[in-house]
Design a protein around this nucleic acid. Sequence first.
DNA 1: CGTATGCTTGAATCACGTCAACTGATGTGG
DNA 2: CCACATCAGTTGACGTGATTCAAGCATACG
Lengths: 252, 252
Amino acid sequence: MSGSPTDLPRIGMSRTVAEDHWPILCGACSDIREIDERSIVNPRHKVLDTSLLLLDGLVGRQIPRRDGNRVHLVALGVPGDFIDLHAYPLKWLDHHVTTYSKSRAAIFRHDALSDLIDTRPDLGREIWSMTLVDASIHRHWAFRNGSMRALARVANFLCEMRVRLQSAGRGDGPFDLPLFQTDIGDACGMTNVHVSRVLRQLREAGCCRLVRGRLIVDDVQKLHKIGQFDPRYLYLPDAPQPEPDEMMSGRI
Amino acid sequence: MSGSPTDLPRIGMSRTVAEDHWPILCGACSDIREIDERSIVNPRHKVLDTSLLLLDGLVGRQIPRRDGNRVHLVALGVPGDFIDLHAYPLKWLDHHVTTYSKSRAAIFRHDALSDLIDTRPDLGREIWSMTLVDASIHRHWAFRNGSMRALARVANFLCEMRVRLQSAGRGDGPFDLPLFQTDIGDACGMTNVHVSRVLRQLREAGCCRLVRGRLIVDDVQKLHKIGQFDPRYLYLPDAPQPEPDEMMSGRI
DNA sequence: CGTATGCTTGAATCACGTCAACTGATGTGG
DNA sequence: CCACATCAGTTGACGTGATTCAAGCATACG
């Protein structure tokens, strides 16, 4: 119980909310929640009346797979992300929300959000935007899983995590990425064995090393190249307005 | 120029908007747009000031692939869907929007939507919800591309299209699905050749046949089973509130 | 110390991609 | 009307990227 903290960090995705709107949003926070690593935040299909803004840690959204005990990871939330804001209009979620590391999150009651949005529609559009950037990232994950080979897929995934964590102020150099190779496999749709082989390739190419939950990127350029990484889909608040595409080639 | 049509059909995803709110939303429609088949609705990275509610036809959202002329299909819009509503808060899109068949769509100017939402925050939350169901479908596409084999993937894709088109009033029996095998490949992350083989399997199993842009489902049960189809992620307005999951098995 | 867990590596297998030839429907121009 | 081209779909042969199964290794922890 910390009352109504008005000094939440405005980092990463949170910068989608204008600087002068931020304290207003913070005023709607009712509490802070600490969550153990590798635990369930919200089970899927359960009706929720709060949503969480991640302050610290790494949070996944996962869908159980039919076969055995494996899951598929459909999203990863980093600090600054609203990890289950979509539960506000939707009431319940189609996936589990779980932590990968010890986490801290700001709690927003849905009725408080309603009050806020009713009086400040401009702020409403900004937090709507946050869910839409989420959706863009989902599209990218569908794209990545559907059209990239293992090496590019993992490289691209690591590029994304690096940029998003950087945007959340989690270090320009080596940074914490508390994922096992199995987890990367769950996110990229491949087995832990193949993730191991791919990471070795990246390591031996001098690109990057993932050593006990910490990613050291040795050659960003090369990693971006291998991962065909183009960060525009992240709609980073400080990124320039992209140039419209040259006309599409090939058949529609 | 048809003035401000207040009688747009409330079908499929549009039923997310309450019945008594619907005419209010329709009042913000400025025009109807007819679009040729296989043409570009919006190129990506272009700033938009209108969004479209699809009335008729089939519309894809596609991301160009690095290699050659192929694209990846990250979403398909059916009648009743807002196909580029996310451009309203986001300004520009990360993907191309193109038609697969001759289409008709209702045009909503973004400034008109702003006026509407400012005065009717409840309606605002409903159209927000529509973009969130979209996002849920994106997650499912990421899940499907990442964790299903070709046969299940295509079957699951066809199940989804069937349910969504049914919900849009496009027939309980055989229905138009104006996609080439290459297009299904673009959506499911596989080659047209393999799509052909998979469709043959489904055909020979007595499941369904795709014949010149028309899907005939012979055994829905079997198709759902092969595709491991669970429609809850579609948040259909008339679906019952799902039961919370039995506790998750396996490690988190 | 033994055990559990995450990572690594190899060998066998399989799913899917690639390449290429062929079919059948549709359309076009002489 | 036929000759020809085009394009979606089909099928086969072959190559390869990823999975599976299994064993071994290293570190952490009781």
